[in-house]
Design a binder for these strands. Structure first.
Lengths: 127, 127
DNA sequence: CAGAATCCTAGCAGATACTG
DNA sequence: CAGTATCTGCTAGGATTCTG
């Protein structure tokens, strides 16, 4: 026996989850998605309203970000045929559920912010 | 009254949290950090062991990723002065706590994976 | 084995200008 | 107001080579 030992395989807790996690992170890991999701929070917002709230985001990036979120069913886009035009964005239930998870992330960040900062300065000092 | 209304400010739930969240995402939002954290899971791993488990990561990126994680106090690096050299990496308590949050993220991803996929095809079909 | 050093490229994202 | 179109720089990250 003692076969070639193909590739050490892990505990299995993350093996299948790898693609899944990478998927979420590719969704919310970009520069603006979570910010926009946060600003949408619990109310409907208009395009330029979001733009101001998410400053300094550019029009181009807000547009692209919103389209991505809409594509994944995280936000809805409703066009009111008025003059001037008005477009409302809001979180879907799925988007809201994501916001919950993001808040958990923020909680962790809050609890560990200073610790991380300290570790960094220590690490850099050790040079 | 009715002042210039500087910039619409949000519900406050995310306002202060924005930098915090961006901070975490810049840490785990890169291509390899969470994968490495997952592989470290509950046991100590050696460099090339991690390399195989995290394939197809390159040496350069594994090295850089580990250094970043060590800098933030998420993993420890212990060098055994043997021949050939042996270096062990393991999660710190802080790293483990982050893994918990990441697992929550994975849970959300798991629950919403098919839904998102469906939304995407629907969105693309609507063209 | 565990890296460091170097080179190189795709694509993310900013700035700017234009449109219905 | 709510976007699109273009042009461009920057950098994350891959491939490869070298070392203690």
């Amino acid at each position: 026996m003692a076969e070639p030992l193909p590739i050490s395989d892990d505990d299995g807790l993350c093996e299948e989850g790898r693609d899944l996690i990478r998927g979420v992170l590719e969704r919310i890991g970009d520069k603006w998605s979570v910010i926009v999701i946060c600003q949408l929070g619990d109310t409907t917002r208009r395009f330029n309203e979001l733009r101001r709230m998410s400053a300094p985001i550019t029009q181009r990036m807000l547009s692209a970000t919103l389209r991505g979120l809409e594509r994944d069913g995280l936000v809805t886009r409703t066009v009111h045929d008025t003059k001037p035009p008005r477009v409302d964005y809001a979180l879907t239930p799925r988007g809201t559920s994501l916001l919950e998870v993001v808040r958990a992330l923020a909680g962790w960040a809050e609890r560990n912010a200073t610790g991380i900062l300290d570790s960094r300065t220590a690490f850099d000092a050790a040079g």
